[in-house]
Design a protein around this nucleic acid. Structure first.
Lengths: 117, 117
DNA sequence: TCAATAGTTCATAGTTTCCGAACTATTGAA
DNA sequence: TTCAATAGTTCGGAAACTATGAACTATTGA
């Protein structure tokens, strides 16, 4: 188990952020980490809505978020704590994360309106 | 050659937009279409920077942008005209496209600064 | 020392993307 | 009309990427 790689904020690329968040599961994980007072373990996040995500897939999702520069992961005892790198990313690409998060959030409302009838 | 599919703006999903624009080539194509007074043919766009994109790949890039709801394509004689659906998308996901375009634009500056030394 | 917990890594099946080659559609001559 | 040129689409197979079960690693607490 080699130590995690966290890119310096200057090396963070917009395409990596868009790619990471273009998967709705990963976007949901990221939003979850943002909401959870800024910290979340991997397993706490593993049941997203109805669907259970296998832990190997989860591990990979966290890796993609980490390498895109969106989160920082550190081991605390047996568990992993994940922090959003919101301020960093916001300073480098102002407005990007809020716009993406808002877009997903507004979309959920309309999804449920659609499926409600 | 079947007619093009353009999703209704209500069916446009944030993940499709992020996925479409997570490819730097496609993002550059989209920006190019936005800049070109709102219209651009496919071939006018085919030389992006240094790299030549094969036309089958280009055709696919336009398809991805179209199906993500980002552009509208219509045939005029022998050529294709592509219009950005900026106002539509902006109304549905306010701030999303400007933030993405700005992120890529600011990144280019820093890329060239890096490679200049 | 051992079991439990939390996650990573590996192997592989399935999916997506890229691009050359062949094809289609439209126009403007000869 | 037919033909060549232009502008793109579609097809097919190789390469790249993604998901997940199974095996593994690391840490803790009994």
């Amino acid at each position: 188990m080699r130590p995690f790689f966290h890119p310096s904020i200057d090396d963070v690329q917009p395409e990596a952020i868009l790619h990471a968040l273009s998967d709705p599961n990963r976007a949901a994980i990221f939003v979850n980490i943002m909401r959870a007072g800024g910290i979340q373990t991997c397993s706490a996040v593993s049941a997203l809505g109805d669907r259970v995500i296998p832990k190997s897939s989860l591990s990979n999702h966290f890796k993609v978020l980490r390498e895109a520069g969106l989160i920082r992961s550190e081991r605390h005892g047996v568990e992993m704590r994940n922090h959003p790198r919101f301020a960093d990313v916001e300073a480098r690409f102002p407005g990007l994360l809020p716009a993406i998060i808002t877009a997903y959030a507004s979309n959920v409302v309309e999804d449920s309106r659609e499926t409600a009838e």
